[in-house]
Amino acid sequence: MNAPLTVEKANLSPKDFATDQEVRWCPGCGDYAILKAVQKTLADIGAQPATTVFVSGIGCAARFPYYVETFGFHTIHGRAPAVATGVKLANPELDVWVVGGDGDMLSIGGNHLMHALRRNVDLNILLFNNEIYGLTKGQYSPTSRVGTRSPSTPKGSIDRPLSALNMALGIGARFVARAIDTQQKALPGILEAAWRHKGASLVEIIQNCIVYNDEAFAAFTERSVEADAQVHVVHGQPLIFGKERDKRLKRSENGYGLEVAPLGEGDPLIHDQTDRVLAGMLAALEPPMPVAVGILLDDPAETSWERAVRAQDAAERRPDADLGAVMRRGATWTA
């Protein structure tokens, strides 16, 4: 069996989670901010380098494990959730984080993301969404908006983009959150909640690719507009936003969506992070509606997949099982 793991909290600082490797993202890339927030989160939660594993696929984001002073496995394109599933299956005691971009996890690896979420493997999945392929030099991705001009779509892309969070909710994910690379205050809290959630957690991190898709999210991340263009959702708190905190979300007349209304006329909607239907409506908000940021859904199951698998296996395990006896069982004869 696996070596017993120490459970005490490590008393490490964010700096202790930096490696001696030169970070090779473009200057100004949103990945730097995310790395910083992750290192802070690891310090905050008292992560042990020995029992923490970062697994990634391929892409700019997937270089992440080289920069975190824990165990790290940089695998192949799209397959990180599947490799991580194997890691958890072999040793459920490990804290396993999966890092990848929109091309890695929604295009080539979409199937694995889907099934890791469906099974509810206890993974903290960080999806860096920059709506572009960076490492391969700027092609459009499955989250690029219609009309995106790129080397592979010089006249603009035709494909409709997918919503990672709505996809995750449809699959049955039980922790779904959105964060923004530059929001250093909010990001560690969301990451910590993802870590606390026992089961698969998906955090979509809006990440600016300064080289190939700069300002793709400016419509809701620019300092000047963000207060009016984002709604920060907090469990049990009213869904209000705006520079003057004067706008609220309400159920639309037909009941199937959300609308913006001035605060004051009627009660604001209260966020309930266990409400999957509300999470779906929040995830679907796009400019000009305010983009929902924060923990949209956190509704843990009784147990995570790998623990259920191990428990089922453990019930069948017989420490004194004798392979020779098993092989001799059934119809045998002597010559």
């Binding site: 496995f73 695998t75 397959r79 599947a82 490799v83 194997g86 299956l89 072999a90 694995h112 099934h115």
Partner: peptide, 21 residues
């Protein structure tokens, strides 16, 4: 432990993850 994965690639990837662990 046996694991019926979502596809062939996931099956080998999970086996590699298990070996890594």
């Amino acid at each position: 432990t046996t694991f019926q994965a979502e596809d062939e690639i996931a099956a080998v990837a999970a086996a590699i993850g298990a070996a890594y662990a």
